[in-house]
């Protein structure tokens, strides 16, 4: 693939940024562990061993090597459930963030390009959506649509498109007044061609950055919804379900809570670091102000 010198420089900045590298490696390893779960998990995540309930991790007193992270109230292997839980977390984060990104970016570009009543309508819709605390809107949507992991994904898309729409619309308004857009118009380009071929590429760095942060948000929202029992079926090992189950017994077995919280922490941390690093590496204005600001 041939890259322009500017694109190559941007890639280089990304790949040498410590945040991007750390975050990327974190996400990559969690994704690999999740994908390999059927082969590396020591047990079936649903397999119950009622003679070995609430076991501590292998390194603690009373732990056993066959349950590296201990067991829950039903004697299920926590390590195996964590590995399978990674699949759900990443599945939701990729699909929901992609959906929200597509919807939000599309509406943002339409609003900025056509202006007038299109912009008015989209901006007012964003205002209305922003009046809801996201969790409250998610709860209402899931009451309306019914529970389930795919409904959670749909709910995240229907809620978080506004995050993309607001930011990308204001960036698109800046791009709209650039000379090359006017040149494209004079050259007789169609609406779709200008929006997709001329405007969109200018916003790709911003879209990628926001996408990374949105993936972290999606992981949290899925955990919240499976925690209150509105996401996956109760027998599916999601991190939120594990926390909700283990909360009842956290006096005797704090590990059951701490380990899935740690899993969520590492995943969200990975996406945040990635997003933060990309923002600094790709956003020219920020790079400039940072160069000035740090002595």
């Amino acid at each position: 693939m041939r890259l322009s010198p500017r694109a190559r420089a941007a890639w280089l900045r990304c790949l040498t940024d410590p945040r991007v590298v750390t975050g990327g490696l974190l996400i990559l390893s969690i994704a690999t562990l999740g994908l390999l779960a059927p082969w590396i998990a020591p047990h079936d995540p649903q397999e119950q061993d009622l003679l070995a309930t609430l076991m501590p991790p292998a390194w603690a007193v009373g732990g056993e090597a066959r349950f590296p992270f201990g067991t829950d109230t039903l004697g299920r292997c926590i390590a195996s459930r964590l590995l399978y839980g990674a699949r759900i977390a990443l599945y939701v984060s990729v699909t929901a963030a992609t959906g929200a990104m597509l919807l939000g970016t599309l509406l943002a570009i339409l609003a900025a390009y056509f202006g007038g009543w299109v912009d008015w309508l989209i901006s007012r819709a964003v205002d209305v959506w922003m009046a809801f605390p996201p969790v409250v809107l998610a709860l209402i949507l899931l009451v309306g649509m019914g529970a389930g992991v795919n409904k959670v994904i749909l709910a995240i898309i229907l809620i978080d498109w506004t995050r993309f729409c607001r930011v990308i619309r204001s960036e698109a308004l800046v791009v709209m007044v650039r000379d090359y857009i006017a040149a494209a118009r004079l050259a007789g380009f169609g609406h779709r061609q200008i929006m997709l071929k001329e405007m969109l590429p200018a916003m790709i760095p911003l879209v990628i950055t926001m996408m990374s942060i949105e993936m972290g948000i999606a992981v949290i929202v899925e955990a919240i919804m499976s925690f209150v029992g509105l996401s996956v079926e109760p027998d599916v090992p999601a991190w939120g379900v594990m926390i909700a189950d283990a909360r009842q017994t956290m006096h005797q077995a704090p590990w059951g809570v701490i380990l899935p919280v740690g899993a969520i922490f590492l995943t969200v941390l990975g996406f945040n670091l990635l997003g933060d690093g990309l923002r600094r590496a790709l956003d020219a204005r920020l790079v400039l102000s940072r160069a000035v600001a740090t002595p």
């Binding site: 909360r247 956290m250 704090p254 809570v257 969520i264 969200v268």
Partner: peptide, 22 residues
């Protein structure tokens, strides 16, 4: 960075575990 990577409801559980229970 670490504080932002744990959502409020998980902080709530961790605080109960640490300050409340232990």
């Amino acid at each position: 960075t670490a504080m932002m990577a744990i959502p409020e409801f998980l902080w709530a559980i961790l605080l109960i575990l640490l300050v409340g229970v232990s």
